[in-house]
Design a protein around this nucleic acid. Sequence first.
DNA 1: CTGTATCCGACGTGATACTG
DNA 2: CAGTATCACGTCGGATACAG
Lengths: 136, 136
Amino acid sequence: MNPRTSTNPSNLNVLGLTEAPEHSDCRAVSTVLARVGDKWSVLVIMLLVDGTKRFNELKRMIGGISQRMLTLTLRGLERDGLVTRTVFPTIPPRVDYELTDLGRSLAEPVKALGMWAFDNMPDIQAARQHFDTKND
Amino acid sequence: MNPRTSTNPSNLNVLGLTEAPEHSDCRAVSTVLARVGDKWSVLVIMLLVDGTKRFNELKRMIGGISQRMLTLTLRGLERDGLVTRTVFPTIPPRVDYELTDLGRSLAEPVKALGMWAFDNMPDIQAARQHFDTKND
DNA sequence: CTGTATCCGACGTGATACTG
DNA sequence: CAGTATCACGTCGGATACAG
């Protein structure tokens, strides 16, 4: 995710939450969901749960991510205080990424969601197939 | 979300999961996260937890959603078997949307995530502000 | 009331090339 | 190794108009 868009006021406006201040919890939900819902953040978080990783190490483990997107994803996570970025000024350079306590605490509810997805995948796929064939 | 994109193979390809079949759980996580992460689905699910709602009722409660996006969101949720759509062939027409058991079960981990977001919002906002001012 | 159809701008993403 | 810069493309989402 582009860090610039995370706090973009328009993201809140379109949610209709600015004119409904009593739903401040919805704003919080939306921002975290924006992070969790983006294409790569969760994958990175899950990989970092097992310990500190280097840039290319993450890139290799994910497999399908571009250099650009991994950089953007890690910057976004760093900005939100979910991962720390440690640079070793060596040649060649080495950068370690590690989950913060906040990041580790996020991993818990995310794992719960992931387990739900895994458990209910058959139902969802069946529902999709049924829906799609019904509207051939 | 556009229902046509939910099962778009490219969504899986770019995740690098097609060439890593041993990470089948990651595929499941990704698809549910795509749904949870989209702009409106979670909001709709949360509103439907309290009971059956009509189209314009949802539209009014959300406030900032366009007719088009509410339709697309509801279609996506229906396709995944998370909500049911009941049409009353009256004049004027009336359509009720209700959470399925599957949808209600999804609400649980989503709520957990929402509570995490609410609880940690101060930390995240502080981290963002710190990050942004640091890189003025 | 509950949609569908169309247009259009904005953003996310990937590919590629380049840098320290 | 770990990025940054640039471009090109596709999709998402809003606005508007129209329909049953």
